[in-house]
């Protein structure tokens, strides 16, 4: 049976953490550049110019793109034919710990929401594990900042609300977020599932490539409609008006109860950082 060493997993996790904080994905950069080209307003173009210049500086100097280097969110797909002779959660947290310490990243995690004592190493990570066929280990990592996370919302709609209810809720959420979520944003939208499943698929939607499209035609049509309607709101870069309010909309769907229509909107700021590796 195939195996991988604990040390290798830890060092890969550390690498993902440091790279994600400093190197913005080329496709996201291309979207920002495209947005800049479409903005009629000078202020919006100027802000997008600052964002583009910033990611170039981050890339060459290894200074983090944003000071909010987030909570570590990790999606792990564990091949059922891979044998691990160590505690996976502990090893992932050790990689996160080393990445945040050795990469000079901000430690933004408190041990309890009310006593608010910083854990000083950015652990624990939020880890989602699933078992899959094969003998590989896929790790997807995103440092999720609070600016956009705080503006995310979930609603338990009813089947009668339908697609119009979903669109209304998404637009309302984006308007409430306004300039607070650091637009241009990317929307991760979950529809269906139950209360927690819906939030989880919304989060996972943010890990999709910025230029991909949903496979399911219903979800794909919803992505297209929302992309258009959100960008008609006029919120613009940093909420100072413009046509670039969102760079992409990602809809993930799941089966749900006959009585339910859950919808979750997870907002991602323009520093859309995520990295993955397969071991």
């Amino acid at each position: 049976m195939r195996t991988i060493s604990k040390d290798r997993l830890i060092s890969e996790m550390e690498r993902l953490v440091v790279e994600a904080a400093t190197v913005l994905d080329d496709k996201v950069v291309a979207c920002l550049r495209n947005g800049q080209g479409q903005e009629p307003g000078e202020r919006a173009r100027h802000i997008l110019g600052e964002i583009l210049e910033n990611q170039a500086i981050a890339r060459t100097t290894s200074i983090p793109i944003c000071q909010d280097t987030g909570v570590a969110v990790v999606f792990v797909e564990l091949g059922r034919d891979l044998h691990l002779d160590f505690d996976l959660t502990e090893a992932l947290n050790e990689g996160v710990r080393r990445g945040y310490q050795n990469g000079y990243l901000r430690k933004s995690v408190v041990r309890h929401p009310l006593d608010r004592v910083n854990t000083k190493d950015n652990t624990p990570a939020v880890i989602h594990l699933s078992l899959v066929p094969g003998d590989r280990l896929r790790i997807r990592f995103a440092p999720k900042g609070a600016g956009s996370e705080n503006m995310s919302r979930l609603a338990m709609l009813t089947p009668a609300d339908g697609i119009e209810g979903i669109v209304r809720f998404v637009l309302e959420t984006v308007k409430l977020a306004g300039g607070k979520a650091c637009p241009p944003i990317i929307l991760g939208i979950g529809i269906g599932g139950n209360f927690e499943k819906c939030a989880l698929i919304a989060k996972e939607a943010l890990f999709r490539e910025v230029d991909d499209r949903a496979e399911n035609p219903i979800d794909r049509a919803l992505e297209e409609r929302l992309f258009e309607e959100v960008n008609k709101l006029g919120i613009g870069p940093m909420g100072l008006s413009g046509v670039t309010t969102c760079l992409a909309v990602k809809v993930n769907s799941a089966a749900c109860h006959i009585a339910s229509l859950p919808v979750a909107v997870n907002i991602q700021c323009h520093a859309a950082r995520h990295k993955e590796t397969v071991l």
């Binding site: 802000i47 600052e50 964002i51 210049e53 910033n54 990611q55 500086i57 981050a58 100097t61 200074i63 983090p64 793109i65 944003c66 000071q67 600016g147 300039g179 650091c182 870069p237 940093m238 100072l240 700021c269 323009h270 520093a271």
Partner: peptide, 12 residues
């Protein structure tokens, strides 16, 4: 208001 998410640029 300062543009959010440009902390590398501002550090300079």
């Amino acid at each position: 208001d300062v543009t959010g998410g440009i902390g590398a640029l501002l550090s300079q």
